[in-house]
Computed example of a mutant assay.
Amino acid sequence: MHIQKFALPLLLVSICSLAKAYDPADKVIVKPGNMPIIFSVPHDGDESLGWISPRSKGATVRDADTRELAEKTADLLEKKTGKRPYLVIAKFSRKFLDVNRKEEDAQESAEAIPAYHHYHEQLAGFVTEVSSKYSGNALLIDIHGQSDDPGTIFRGSRNGTTTKRLLKRAGNVALQGPTSITGQLQSKSYQVFPAIDATDLKEDKRFNGGYIISAHGSNNATGIDAIQLEFGKRTRENASLASDFADAIIAFQNKFLTEAPASN
């Protein structure tokens, strides 16, 4: 009788534990590529992480349409060049976990930590791969959305810090000259900040880059050049954005990224 009395509660606890569990690999889209470009999309997910409660601190707003922008741009790059960028895209909601923050600030539940580690481990793996394959001449683009200035695309690089290798190799023109990514977008009538004629690399402090680019950028010995792009709400609604973004990346790659010969 005593065994039967406690069997049901134990069974319920077991069932609840299983219900709460999640597989971190199912919460992150990871797609390898074959060009020296990595897209990171941390804030357009809508899924929960087990039964974790929403975070009570920090930004939780979804960067709507940034996943679609990354995936459409990847498809167009393949169509235009025959090659695709690497993709790491969060399926989980920023309400539960923000991977663009340090681990201690990114979550309020230990249950979220496996997803946090999985996201950054996938990025780190791709960074290592492209760094080796393309002799360090590669770029991580962390894609975000903002509504503070809906008609503007903001570049973030910690004022050039996370593109240390690129600046040393090619100078400021690679980051905000006519053939930089934002320079190409400006030439297609998008409003960008900083503008290509800016006299220095100073960025808007609201959008000058978060944890992802600082953790994986070339400010680290094992990192690659990394920028954050904050696309304004109105720019994300532009039907031509993905195509224009793809063209800007192609122009930048042709000018500033030299692919290493394929190994036999």
Rank of each mutant, 00 (worst) to 15 (best):
F126G: 01
F126V: 02
V127I: 12
V127C: 01
V127E: 02
T128E: 14
E129N: 08
E129Y: 10
V130R: 00
V130Y: 00
S131F: 02
S131M: 07
S131V: 01
S131L: 05
S131C: 03
S131G: 11
S132L: 11
S132H: 10
Y134D: 05
Y134A: 02
Y134W: 10
Y134S: 03
S135V: 02
S135W: 04
S135T: 05
G136S: 04
G136V: 03
N137E: 14
N137S: 10
A138K: 03
L139A: 03
L139F: 06
L139V: 01
L140C: 05
I141P: 01
D142P: 09
I143K: 06
I143L: 14
H144T: 04
H144R: 08
G145D: 06
G145F: 01
Q146N: 06
S147T: 12
S147Y: 10
D148A: 13
D148T: 10
D148N: 13
P150L: 13
P150A: 11
P150M: 14
G151P: 07
G151E: 14
T152D: 08
I153H: 11
I153L: 13
R155G: 06
R155Y: 11
R155T: 07
R155S: 10
R155D: 05
R155E: 13
G156H: 05
G156T: 02
S157T: 15
R158H: 10
R158T: 07
R158M: 07
N159M: 04
N159T: 12
N159Q: 08
N159R: 03
T161H: 07
T161V: 09
T161A: 11
T161S: 08
T162N: 07
T162M: 06
T162S: 12
T163Q: 06
T163S: 09
T163N: 06
R165W: 00
R165F: 02
L166H: 02
L166Q: 03
L167M: 06
K168P: 00
K168E: 12
R169E: 07
R169S: 07
R169V: 00
A170V: 00
A170D: 05
A170C: 05
G171V: 04
N172T: 06
N172V: 02
N172M: 10
V173P: 01
V173E: 15
V173N: 09
V173G: 07
A174R: 00
L175G: 02
L175C: 06
L175R: 03
Q176P: 00
Q176G: 00
P178D: 14
P178L: 06
S180G: 04
S180A: 11
S180M: 13
S180H: 12
I181K: 08
I181C: 05
I181F: 08
I181R: 08
I181A: 06
T182H: 04
T182W: 03
G183V: 13
G183Y: 07
Q184S: 15
Q184L: 09
Q184C: 13
L185G: 07
L185W: 14
Q186E: 15
Q186N: 12
K188F: 10
K188R: 15
K188Y: 11
K188S: 11
S189Q: 15
S189W: 12
Y190Q: 09
Y190R: 10
Q191F: 14
Q191V: 14
Q191P: 01
Q191D: 14
Q191M: 14
F193T: 14
F193I: 06
P194A: 11
P194V: 04
P194W: 08
P194K: 05
P194S: 09
P194L: 09
A195E: 15
A195F: 05
